[in-house]
């Protein structure tokens, strides 16, 4: 199944994904790749029930998502792939999931993170993970919503951010 949007967003499934991106990229599936959510039936149910009818949702661990995407056994639809952090997306790429372009959609402030962009806060580990994505030849594009401000995440931005950490 082709991944039509691979997005890093710590809110996972929410309005920007279901109301913002979905009409634009017309997914048939949302693959939520997150170990904590996949291990918890209630969390899985809450996220799954937040998706509009007509879009199927799979909540998978990072390893299971990588395996499913690599096997190509998710059918012939169009998938939005979501992770909460750059590290988890880098893990999927390291596991061989073929992703050419990543949407860095939103990572909120918490202690230890600094602002890289107004909608992206990162710590040292996040910068390392984003660099791993760039080194793997993946294009990383920061954009919250369709038509919103778009920033190409490159080594210069990562280095500038790292210098402030």
């Amino acid at each position: 199944m082709p991944v039509v949007l691979a997005r890093i967003d710590d809110r996972l499934i929410h309005g920007q994904v279901t109301a913002g991106w979905s009409p634009r990229v017309r997914p048939t599936h949302i693959i939520l790749a997150n170990n904590d959510v996949a291990a918890d039936a209630w969390q899985s149910r809450v996220y799954t029930s937040s998706v509009p009818p007509g879009i199927e949702t799979s909540v998978l661990s990072i390893a299971a998502a990588a395996a499913a995407l690599n096997r190509g056994d998710c059918g012939n639809g169009r998938a939005i792939l979501l992770t909460a952090s750059p590290g988890e997306m880098a893990e999927l790429v390291r596991a061989g999931v073929p992703l050419a372009r990543i949407n860095l959609g939103g990572v909120h402030y918490k202690a230890g993170r600094i602002e890289m962009l107004p909608w992206v806060y990162v710590d040292a580990q996040d910068v390392v993970a984003l660099r791993r994505l760039l080194d793997a030849g993946v294009e990383v594009n920061a954009q919250q919503v369709p038509g919103g401000r778009e920033v190409d995440v490159d080594e210069a931005l990562l280095a500038r951010t790292e210098g402030r950490l």
Partner: peptide
């Protein structure tokens, strides 16, 4: 305000049960 948004998810994860 909006079914399916971050508020609904957070409220349910906090006290939906």
């Amino acid at each position: 305000d909006d079914f399916g948004g971050s508020c609904g998810v957070a409220a349910q994860l906090c006290c939906g049960q």
